[in-house]
Write a protein that binds this DNA or RNA. Structure first.
Length: 276
DNA sequence: ACCCTTGTTTATGA
DNA sequence: ATCATAAACAAGGG
């Protein structure tokens, strides 16, 4: 689930539990999630402390007292947790930082697409990974500048972390629904008012999601996410509320855009005409 | 047993 | 150079 709102929620959690405390041990339960060799990581972590936390898009950073930075990416299924006793370690804990006061901070990742690596600075990492401006910082003008030269369809561009960092699959669908723009519109056909609507929708969706700590069930009824069928009966074909939150008679359409599952209200988000 | 999945990287071909 | 597509990564859960 980790898109920007989840990662921001993780960052705030880490900021609460880990700041200004000596790291006394690095426990590696599965080295697969390490993007830096275990011994190098241990050398740079043990005896140091985290002085600040940062986030760009879906990446979380722990700034260390050594000046180095620990970069966390959560892949498809990453999470964080804290525990005190070994037998209380969350299931799928892959790595844990042991703190001076006995608390252990867990990097949890069932599917192991996440990575923990050391980097010299946040700026260096941002450049190396080609991350664009964070989705919460990007302005309507910047969006227009970055998107309008492109003739390709909008949704894959919004998922592209080098254009703007932090938007994932469901958020893009939610943003486009709130902005009333079809995901297959060509980016160069959007008018200024639509870039402004896009920007407003990004702000709305991200701030709403963060304020609910990314718990989907608590999102407003006006959100498309409730039509994705993630709740209760998630068996394909048996999804429950498949109707538009604004047009209770209009069924939400599911398709694949850029190879990703995509949900659209055909009435709120009219399909582009062929000439576009 | 089969199909789906929130992300990113890489290969391949147009 | 740009773009589209698919596969790969790994594994849980329906």
């Amino acid at each position: 689930m980790p898109e920007l709102p989840e990662v921001e929620t993780y960052r705030r959690f880490l900021n609460e539990v880990i700041l200004h405390q000596a790291i006394v041990a690095l426990e590696v339960r599965d080295a697969h999630v390490l993007g830096t060799p275990e011994d190098v990581l241990r050398e740079n972590l043990v005896g140091r402390q985290v002085t600040a936390t940062r986030r760009i898009g879906k990446n979380c950073f722990l700034e260390l007292s050594s000046g180095q930075v620990l970069a966390l990416h959560f892949g498809m299924s990453g999470d964080v947790g804290a525990y005190r006793h070994d037998h209380d370690a969350p299931r799928f804990t892959r790595v844990a930082l042991h703190l001076a006061d006995g608390l252990r901070v867990a990097f949890i990742d069932p599917r192991k697409f996440g990575r923990i690596r050391l980097t010299e600075s946040v700026a260096h990492y941002q450049q190396a990974k080609k991350l664009g401006p964070d989705a919460l910082d990007v302005t309507a003008t910047q969006l227009q500048q970055r998107l309008s030269p492109k003739k390709t369809i909008l949704k894959p561009l919004l998922l592209d972390q080098s254009i703007t960092a932090g938007l994932g699959n469901w958020i893009v669908d939610e943003v486009l629904f709130q902005a009333k723009i079809h995901p297959e519109r060509r980016a160069n056909t959007l008018v200024t008012a639509e870039f402004e609507a896009l920007h407003a929708a990004i702000q709305l969706v991200l701030t709403t999601a963060i304020s609910h700590e990314a718990t989907y069930r608590h999102f407003p009824a006006s959100f498309l996410i409730h039509a994705r069928g993630w709740d209760e009966s998630a068996t394909p074909g048996t999804e429950k509320h498949l109707f538009c939150p604004k047009h209770s008679k209009t069924k939400i359409a599911k398709s694949y855009v850029g190879g990703r599952a995509t949900y659209v209200c055909p009435r709120c988000q009219p399909e582009p005409v062929k000439s576009e």
